[in-house]
Design a protein around this nucleic acid. Structure first.
Lengths: 212, 212, 212, 212
DNA sequence: GATGAATGAGCTTTCATTCAT
DNA sequence: CATGAATGAAAGCTCATTCAT
């Protein structure tokens, strides 16, 4: 029973790695099994179907992301919303770049899997996002974040930028640092220079975006 | 002659729509043909292969995105870098949300197609990105954008957030406006409140992210 | 009506050429039509189906072969069987190498076409072969050919060697001459040196093939 | 492990049989699999593609032909060129008529398969033919074969006649014997009666073929 | 536990053929 | 006469899945 546990874990790791790099459709069970010196059908001893295996990976990805993120935040419980947000970004970023492949697999595959399958992940995804929304709401309330942003929307944009960095692999340590640097910079302070005041942009065209 | 042109266009539209919503692998030729009341093999009258069809869609997506974006920028030729950036964001955003599905198809499928196929799109994609890099470089040089950002990295993060919004369809007009609003807000000024100073974040953990 | 006749002929020529070089299955109607600056379906104005077109070519091939061969024989009506055979070989050889492609098309495709189709050619093929059988019978009777050969079998072997030469194209004139030379040499006198007597070989192994 | 071996062999046999009788294009994987009570895709467990299966058959055909032929020659090592030639003819003839279908499959399909595929067989085919050329060269040198024949050309004509016999199946044993008889007769001594002298034919028309 | 062997569903692709124009 | 446009049949191939061992 111990061996079974280990094999199952190995299969999940192998699957996570392939899913992260090749996506859902290009990852065959034979490929996954091959990575751990087994043959495709053997995986059916551990998982009822390909989708169950993938679901386990993506679920693990969502869990790991949430845990790494909340752990990062727990280091400074008295932080204000903006600080919590920064900690969350760092935590999730680390989950993407310094951990196993499950987070990246989730990022890559969440929208590639069949929709009925995604349905089963939705609640976990939702509660993951809710953490971000709550952080932002906190920041809006304590005045550390702008008061004209909606948590639902802001959180998605932040996550989109974060998730993008998952595509960039095999980068030097400096590059990873630079990514984190820019990410935090954009999310927190934007790219406009400090002495150039910028409000939230109106969406109509005829109004100039920024007043200087 | 005219009918062929129309049918070909219809096929491209149908393909763009399915590719944007279902991705490369779930979009079969039978599906595409079905959308325009035809059968799968009929498409071979217009395209030599599935990949040629898809390539036509993605290419159109890259072209449309660039054109819409540059057109938006052309409205204000004397803009500084930050203003150009804002205009570019708006232009590309419009290409995603107010136009045909080709831009969304490109966003969704660019990384799903086989790599030798993607190779053929790479130059177009590169020149698209270079426009963004140049905008940012301009802004850095004219002082309207922060001087500690690298165009290559910043442009990718901005595009990641923009591309994300392509997933959100069937939203109310208000939602789309809100998306654009938040997008510009984040990219330009970040989410931290104005009176809370925030520098670019150092990547070491023990240094507090922001100084207030 | 004259133009139609010419077009039909051109299609037959084009088909013959392609059938001879690529065989029945690799020759598509689009290919044939393309050779005469037309599109595939246009051929249906002249032929009810691909097989009817091919049948016309193969029939023409059998006719041409027969005619060229009999013409060659007619030059020397008083010839004995062996001389007739030589003339026939030369005539057929010429039909293969110095004429249009219909003979080669027939040689290449006769056994590639569907069997029910071949059925329709069989009588013509049979009467073609019968000419050879009669020649040989004549030779056996007049003593100019060995008296231990069966016309049915001998004629097939001769034709097999002849037909083989159809594969060899783009050869120099000297090569074609050499082919004819060896062909006649083998068929008439065999390859064994003249002073080495050789009877017809018994098929049992333990009996030496030749007595010297 | 044993069963796989048997099934693979059965598939090769089935393929050889169908390839020999129907040719490359009319032989579908479903047909081959059907012959051994399986379904088409199952063959992919044993062969990576149709062409790999066919290649295995044709390769086996070339090997069997060569082996059977050389074995026949080995029985009489002191034979002169003419005797070796006779032995080779008998050996190859036996490979065609008394063995499995692989030789016939090769004869039928070698020129039907795509040319890039044939390329892979070419070296084997070449070395097969070279054996024949060497036999003939030996015979020319030791005086047992005519000194005006070129090995390259003579060997092809002999093989053409031999290969032709592959088409004739379901013949009585007597017929097969008769085929071999005539084959050797033609190749070695030709069909002209013994007392009728016949030189190698000049290719010009105005010179009588034979002098009697 | 693991796999060898086999299958069925579904895909892309080719091509002879049809039919309105 | 000729073709543009479309189709159906059939092929090769991939892969998740099953099942006996």
């Amino acid at each position: 029973m111990r061996k079974a546990e280990r094999t199952r874990k190995a299969a999940l790791d192998a699957a996570a790695n392939l899913l992260a790099d090749q996506g859902y459709h290009r990852t065959s069970l034979e490929d996954v099994a091959g990575k751990i010196e087994m043959r495709g059908p053997s995986l059916y001893y551990y998982f009822a179907s390909k989708d169950e295996l993938v679901e386990a990976v993506l679920t693990a990805g969502l869990d790991e992301a949430r845990e790494t993120m909340t752990a990062a935040m727990a280091a400074n419980p008295s932080a204000n919303g903006a600080e919590m947000l920064a900690a969350a970004v760092r935590g999730y970023f680390r989950s993407i770049h310094h951990k196993s492949d499950v987070t990246r697999a989730n990022i890559r595959c969440y929208y590639e899997v069949p929709s009925d399958f995604r349905q089963r992940l939705r609640s976990k995804m939702r509660s993951f996002i809710e953490i971000w929304e709550e952080i932002i709401e906190t920041g809006v309330n304590d005045g550390s974040l702008r008061n004209d942003i909606e948590p639902a929307m802001a959180s998605r944009l932040i996550l989109a930028a974060l998730n993008y960095t998952a595509q960039r692999r095999n980068q030097s340590a400096t590059d990873v640092e630079s990514m984190e640097h820019h990410l935090l910079g954009m999310v927190l302070g934007g790219f406009v220079a400090e002495d150039v005041p910028v409000g939230f942009a109106p969406s109509t065209d005829d109004v100039p975006l920024m007043r200087s």
